[in-house]
Computed example of a mutant assay.
Amino acid sequence: MKPFQLTYVATGSVLLREALSGWGISKRTLASVKYSGGRILVNGDEVTVRHVLEKDDAVTVIFPIEERGEGLAAEEGPLQIVYEDDALLIIDKPPIQNTIPSREHPSGSLANIVANYFEEQRIPATLHIATRLDRDTSGLVCIAKNRHIHHMLSVQQQEKKMKRRYQALVHGELKQQEFAITKPIGRKSTSIIEREVRPDGQFAETEVQVLKEFSGYSHVLLQLNTGRTHQIRVHLSHIGHPLLGDDLYGGKRDLICRQALHCSELELIHPTTGKLLSFSSPLKEDMERLL
């Protein structure tokens, strides 16, 4: 099993520790490299972070092999892989499947199946899911194959450089064709599951564009500018247009038996190459039928 590694080229005379920080290696990642079996090589020789680099020195960071937690069982199952390389795995998740195991659904999750895939492919990593989806929600999920890659993707999300767009079917006809919902979201005081718009909640912003209107419901495109739990569901319910099938937040299940939400587009900057990557996923049959 070959450990994950990255190679950088120094652009001038600088302390190795400072160069690593500039390349996005966090203090936590550096600590795991130093104390958990990783190595740092300069021109093939192992060094410490106090080493002074010279221009054109080749720095190779060999990350420690990660061990999967005992709580995540590897299970066989289908995976619809959209994209894969040494750093990333993009999956098109079906509806009615957990992203990670839960008390109600301890097995059969996407994480269980990916853990088995990592074992079969001898990928030396535990699971790092950068973009989770609710059980009912279908579409694109981004998985990092290394803690460092996960960290870099998290920074992208914080800096709003990662774009996620969803298609949804909502109750009623919306008054505006394009608008943004900017309302803070927090946990509902009477529930451990539900969220709600509340003054003391976390900032949340969802952009909405109406694509087409039908009798009693509308097809909309949504862009998440933040990633709060149940954000889309809460925001749409708050403005009086809950998702079809989302009975937790006021939607009816007469037309579809799950919340009508699908992550159709994902755009990100590749953490190691710097290239812009764009992925798309067509609607699942149950939503497509209603169009």
Rank of each mutant, 00 (worst) to 15 (best):
R132S: 06
K145R: 08
V155D: 07
L236W: 08
S36A: 10
T273Y: 13
K252I: 04
E285F: 04
T137E: 05
D92A: 12
H171I: 05
D246P: 00
T226N: 09
V210Y: 06
G38H: 00
K93V: 02
S32A: 13
T29I: 14
V141L: 04
M152D: 09
V49C: 13
L211V: 07
E173V: 13
I40E: 07
E67T: 14
K55T: 06
F118V: 02
S36D: 14
T190G: 00
D92P: 04
Q177S: 14
F63I: 00
I193A: 11
T11F: 10
V47W: 06
V9M: 07
T126R: 15
R103A: 12
Q157G: 06
E119A: 14
L16G: 10
Q259T: 00
L89P: 03
L88M: 10
P78R: 05
G227L: 09
V42Q: 10
K183F: 14
L30R: 07
V114Y: 03
G172I: 07
E70T: 03
E159V: 01
Q97G: 09
D56Q: 10
S26F: 04
R164Q: 12
N146L: 08
S191P: 06
D246S: 03
R17E: 09
L211D: 06
C257E: 15
L16T: 15
F118G: 02
S36V: 00
G77D: 13
S138K: 05
S278V: 12
N98C: 15
R164N: 11
L133D: 01
L283K: 12
F279H: 03
K163V: 13
S215Q: 12
K27N: 15
H105W: 01
